[in-house]
Write a protein that binds this DNA or RNA. Structure first.
Lengths: 178, 178
DNA sequence: GAATAATCTTGCCAAATGGCAACTAATGAT
DNA sequence: ATCATTAGTTGCCATTTGGCAAGATTATTC
């Protein structure tokens, strides 16, 4: 059936549910679902050469979750995506999304904006990682995404900030004494 | 005139030249030219809160130079792009590129791949910044882009690596003694 | 080619972060 | 409720990196 309207689009989305700890994507496979989270929290993480988890991003309600490079380039992902809490969302496959891109030109602009925003956010994070201290990055995260702290363990947050859990613990102690 | 073929595309590119130190883009203005460098080296850099330059990327011959977020979102750039050496290239404006996107659908895929590749590279760099030591990042840059070292001063390279020129100097000394 | 400026190196010490291990606290499973 | 597991904190010390200032080196300009 041809796709022409916004309601045709919403029909193509199907519901998804995850238990805590479930994987939406495992390193080595191709990201094939573009997911919009309606409830719950997830994290993306890579495994470094020493076998440690490095959290690359957090995803919360009303946010999009997928692995851009793998999804668009159709190559194996170097990252995992895992539920931090029970989650609910709606998903659309790569193939279907492509159909929509062809059928509805406005949709392309939407696709581009996802890429551009993601790129832009990552760049800001890169800059702050280079120029700011871990304490300052911690405080910023606390302010911009306080909800993460309710749902992710500190060691996960530490790896996102680029420090060890030990250091994060000390930073928190230091701050609490102010 | 309508655009239909590859040679129509090449007609839309115009030549550009830069002297050493010239700016292709200044922070605060909108990136409006998509430039393909044929000769020479450039750098992109941001200014941190303390007024220091932070080099975010290097660009060499046969590489594309523009500021993705500013170019596609039509917003003021937070970065500068400056010639490290005399440069030559060809450019196309945002408006013309958009015409091409409409006229030649294959071109869209090309646009997307630029975004996706840029994103993917930035993510790798982010990971290596978090998980690896400055020395290791230095050695990798030396291996992957030895030509940069002929054209950019060490202090610029240091800021790209996320360290001070003093530290880079010490790292180099350390390595030379091996 | 002398003067000037920019770049790079080095010494000294301080600050930030990591590694490991012990200990405590919280969580989850049966 | 108990036991086992995971998460978080802390002490001790090592390593990495930064800050500053003085020299040394190299490049630029007139």
């Amino acid at each position: 059936m041809p796709v022409k309207t916004a309601s045709d689009i919403s029909l193509r989305f199907y519901p998804l549910h995850f238990g805590k700890g479930d994987f939406l994507l495992k390193e080595g496979s191709v990201s094939n679902e573009y997911v919009f989270l309606t409830e719950g929290y997830m994290r993306s993480f890579a495994t470094d050469p020493d076998g440690n988890d490095i959290t690359t991003s957090f995803h919360g309600p009303h946010q999009v979750v997928f692995e851009i490079a793998s999804f668009f380039q159709r190559i194996p992902s170097r990252e995992n995506i895992q539920a931090l809490t029970p989650c609910a969302g709606v998903a659309i496959t790569y193939a279907t999304l492509n159909e929509l891109f062809h059928a509805l030109p406005e949709f392309r602009e939407f696709g581009r904006s996802i890429l551009v925003n993601g790129f832009s956010n990552l760049k800001s994070r890169m800059l702050s990682t280079i120029t700011e201290t871990a304490e300052s990055r911690y405080l910023q995260l606390l302010q911009s995404s306080p909800d993460i702290f309710q749902h992710a363990p500190l060691r996960t947050i530490a790896s996102y900030l680029g420090i060890t859990d030990t250091s994060l613990s000390r930073i928190r102690k230091e701050i609490s004494g102010k």
